[in-house]
């Protein structure tokens, strides 16, 4: 068994098992927690929980004007690499084929060179995110190992993917294997690190929205 066989076989297998177990565990342990019933009556005119959480999710897509300037970089750069990652993962043909193997459905992808371009932008954007984190005293002070590891496991698949398509460094099969291994690492870290925000962010924003609306906060 060579490295690529290992990556495509056992490594991905372990990665996906840990991912499935971890995500299910985190979601279940969170959602099944006993919640205190809010016994207070909703304020007059307060929207229902569903509407309120939907509103809050949309409202938080962009910073409030008072914060706009201070968070401009984080917001824009954040959007760039998030969208970039989404385009690469869900519209790159090899990735679609990988997902098809998991979920059985597929859809058309984008041409390779467009994906390459997006990957380069995403790569630079991720670098910028790290530089910003290290340069901003406040951000730096509140960063933990979790943040840096999360950054690294996100960066590695992008970087190794770029190397693989441009055949830089090692031979292609080795680069491909390393790329797939980096995905396995990403999958394993996902449920236990900050990557879990992919599942939790809308949940928490929605809950907050519903809560605040119930109390009559005018947002």
């Amino acid at each position: 068994m060579d490295l690529l066989d290992f990556a495509r076989g056992p490594a991905l297998q372990i990665g996906l098992y840990v991912f499935a177990f971890g995500v299910a565990f985190r979601l279940a342990s969170l959602l099944l927690l006993p919640r205190l019933k809010d016994l207070s009556a909703a304020r007059k005119g307060a929207p229902g929980a569903v509407v309120a959480s939907g509103r809050e999710i949309i409202r938080r897509m962009w910073p409030q004007s008072v914060y706009a300037e201070a968070t401009r970089f984080t917001t824009i750069n954040g959007y760039i690499f998030h969208l970039g990652l989404a385009i690469i993962v869900f519209l790159g043909t090899p990735h679609i084929l990988f997902l098809k193997g998991l979920i059985g459905v597929s859809w058309p992808g984008l041409p390779t060179n467009i994906i390459n371009g997006v990957a380069v932008i995403t790569f630079l954007s991720l670098i910028a995110a790290l530089v910003h984190r290290l340069q901003s005293p406040v951000l730096k002070a509140i960063s933990t190992a979790n943040d840096y590891i999360t950054w690294l496991v996100t960066m590695l698949p992008v970087a190794t993917g770029l190397l693989a398509i441009s055949h830089l460094g090692w031979r292609y099969e080795t680069l491909l294997a390393v790329h797939i291994l980096s995905i396995a690492v990403f999958l394993i870290w996902f449920p236990f690190g900050k990557l879990m925000h992919a599942f939790l962010i809308f949940l928490s924003r929605g809950t907050t929205g519903a809560h605040l609306a119930h109390r009559g906060a005018q947002l």
């Binding site: 098992y17 499935a20 565990f25 279940a28």
Partner: peptide, 12 residues
Amino acid sequence: AAVAGVAAGAAA
């Protein structure tokens, strides 16, 4: 794995 995860989560 997912089922096991849910079970473990519920237990937690």
